[in-house]
């Protein structure tokens, strides 16, 4: 069946033009991603592209890409990117913030990157109240390397490195890293959303937008955790992974805004490198 849809450049002759409800944001490059079918990274990329466009930020943004499945984020989002070593996105973002105080600085990390090898960097960037916005995609597994157990893997969850399920006695408990960071006074905004359904995706977008606005208003560190799925790593179909996400995953990682300290200017982000204008500083 061939179907015809009038675009803005070709309205149906003599008819009122069709109204555009939804189009791919231009910041999201028109190419196929390397992500597996049903992977939540695509949704988070798209939301990020929409939010940056709505806030007129793409031209001012310097983003930091992680190591992990999202390592090629710079291929998919048409904004400036720096690729950080594994887990070091907040440290790289801190450097960018210190030399480019006017830029909008964004980090995009997965849970293997942020919650495991990069724990020290994210905790201390948050403790310093760095004026950066962190997007944290948590799918509870190391997806890129073949589905090994991550610090965020649920108890009982089978992965290639915990084939009988995660056992607390042997492997410890999953970390709620966003709650952990939220208690630091340097953190202006911390929230957790999910890509599980249309409603949640809308809420997640609002959280990402707020996290970006916090930085624009001069607030401190802002983090949004996006609970995501990993159909291949979890050994499920995309539909099953979404059901799993809505059930045990959301139960273990409650959704909502954890802290919003408003746009209180953080004194810490002025303590950068000594300015050449003030050599005595």
């Amino acid at each position: 069946m061939t179907l015809h849809t009038p675009g803005p450049e070709s309205p149906a002759p003599g008819a009122s033009a069709a109204r555009l409800i939804y189009a791919r944001p231009e910041v999201l490059r028109d190419r196929s991603t390397h992500y597996c079918p049903g992977c939540g990274h695509g949704v988070v990329h798209r939301l990020l592209a929409e939010v940056l466009t709505e806030l007129d930020l793409p031209a001012h943004t310097i983003a930091v890409a992680p190591v992990g499945c999202a390592v090629f984020a710079y291929d998919y989002l048409d904004i400036d990117f720096v690729e950080a070593p594994h887990g070091r996105a907040p440290a790289v973002a801190t450097g960018i913030r210190r030399v480019r105080p006017e830029a909008f600085v964004l980090t995009y990390q997965g849970d293997g990157d942020l919650a495991a090898i990069g724990t020290a960097e994210i905790v201390h960037a948050a403790a310093r109240g760095e004026r950066i916005t962190a997007i944290f995609v948590n799918n509870g597994i190391y997806g890129m390397t073949g589905g090994q157990m991550a610090p965020t893997t649920l108890l009982g969850q089978k992965t290639t490195s915990s084939p009988f399920g995660r056992d607390a006695a042997l492997m410890g408990y999953p970390i709620r890293i966003t709650e952990m960071l939220a208690q630091l006074p340097g953190v202006t905004y911390a929230a957790r959303g999910t890509i599980a359904d249309v409603g949640s995706i809308g809420k997640l977008k609002a959280m990402i937008k707020r996290a970006c606005q916090v930085q624009m208003e001069g607030g401190g560190f802002a983090i949004v955790e996006a609970l995501s799925n990993c159909p291949v790593g979890w050994g499920m179909t995309p539909q099953q992974s979404i059901e799993h996400l809505k059930g045990p995953v959301v139960e273990a990682y409650p959704l909502g805004v954890i802290v919003d300290r408003g746009a209180v200017a953080q004194p810490t982000h002025d303590l950068g490198c000594p300015s050449p204008a003030h050599p005595e500083a």
């Binding site: 309205p11 008819a15 069709a18 939804y22 791919r24 196929s32 991603t33 079918p37 949704v43 798209r46």
Partner: peptide, 19 residues
């Protein structure tokens, strides 16, 4: 469909009044 799609394949239009 457009809001859940991980690959952003959808462009959605509202029908013109005549439709």
């Amino acid at each position: 469909c457009a809001r859940v799609c991980p690959d952003a394949v959808f462009t959605v239009w509202a029908a013109p009044r005549e439709e």
